[in-house]
Design a protein around this nucleic acid. Sequence first.
DNA 1: AAGTGGTCTAGACCACTAC
DNA 2: TAGTGGTCTAGACCACTTA
Lengths: 247, 247
Amino acid sequence: MNHTHIMAAPLGSTLYKEVKQGVLAALAAGEWKAGEAIPSERLLGERFGVSIGTLRKAIDELVAENILIRHQGRGTFVATHARDHHFFRFFRVVRQDGYKSYPSVSLESFQKTRATPLVCEKLGLGTGARVFEFVNRLSLNDDVVLLDRITVPEALFADLTETMLRERPTTLYNLYQDTFGLNIIRTDERLRACTADAATAALLGVDEGSALIEIRRLALSYNNQPVEWRISRVNTDKYEYLVNEGA
Amino acid sequence: MNHTHIMAAPLGSTLYKEVKQGVLAALAAGEWKAGEAIPSERLLGERFGVSIGTLRKAIDELVAENILIRHQGRGTFVATHARDHHFFRFFRVVRQDGYKSYPSVSLESFQKTRATPLVCEKLGLGTGARVFEFVNRLSLNDDVVLLDRITVPEALFADLTETMLRERPTTLYNLYQDTFGLNIIRTDERLRACTADAATAALLGVDEGSALIEIRRLALSYNNQPVEWRISRVNTDKYEYLVNEGA
DNA sequence: AAGTGGTCTAGACCACTAC
DNA sequence: TAGTGGTCTAGACCACTTA
């Protein structure tokens, strides 16, 4: 029997890709919030007019992209940035012996300002758009290791306050999710070697001129929407940046 | 109707996982060489006593892991490290404007020696095992950018010669595949900031003491067999190290 | 035209979770 | 016990490649 599907066939035009886009659209529209369960496979299959197998193939890809999480017997859930969950997917700094631990964060500065041309380009903002800029100092096992200078557009983060950053119970990306409905699903990172300027050296507790790694990260949400621009500097005397490819 | 499969259920014990292991075992045993087509889905389904759908699920995962490549209408092939193919999966250094180009390589040294304790540990070798050690200098767009010190065990690379390295037509990992039957499918990289010593500075054309990125890479084949240990130093004045997570 | 992988279906049964 | 996702089947039809 030929399939008689309800939806039109606009783009890549295979049924399951359309279903995937449909689910992504519902996600981007906030129909299901982070941490919530999405409807059952049977219901979604009916909604999109496809068989379970086809629906599953669409969901399979979203699970592979860490956008959804399945729990057998419970349901399928919108992924969250909870501490124990996918934290190390975006945090790659580990001790040189391989030991992974969660950083403790101290907020060093916070201001509302206007974006530089570089930041405007990275975040896709108009010239002189307003942004929040703040600096976090991260420690691992009581070693000061990272300095993050983070910039986010005011347009997406209306009413962000220093207190919200200081008193957030979990991770930064979890705050983005819960408070602003912004779900980071992808990052683009570029690393260079650099040397510590006086201010950086003081905050990291290293000598001025020490070799550091500089990470420039753009974090994106659904539809490749840029959400956060970040420049990190890492003291790699006892820690290193980990990349696994394959497996 | 219940499935009546031929194989025993040893480990993760779902049918398609067993099929996947069976295909991996055939690959590791060299039953199908790099670049060759594996048997058709119908034949493999018969061989493992499973339906096409189950066989496909096993192959799907191997394709997702870049171990096999499917070409509609032609067949399924063992992945190769051909230049145009997956080269940038293991080579992450790009120009700061994002432009990707293939490096030109010059071999700076080549020797047979005994492994240091560190190398023995990384490559899983016995104390004092014999290894080949060579240094490559890589240029991108006529800029000298990378210095690779590469160590491989003699046990896996019997009869490796300087000439083979100098006159290889394609990539290094392609040489490993074609000449030694060693298929790199995974790497573990750890990055630190470092400063250029005199020898490194001279070869990279930078000042002694310049900040560089140091990459320590272990490259592995099937069954997590360590094949190559490599320490690279990168001049990031005009280039950077690229990591994309998600999508 | 024959053979390959790619998509899709409809339904069975299993394993796990919650009530 | 009811509902969820997880696995598996058997086969139809499509799209592409090769000859």
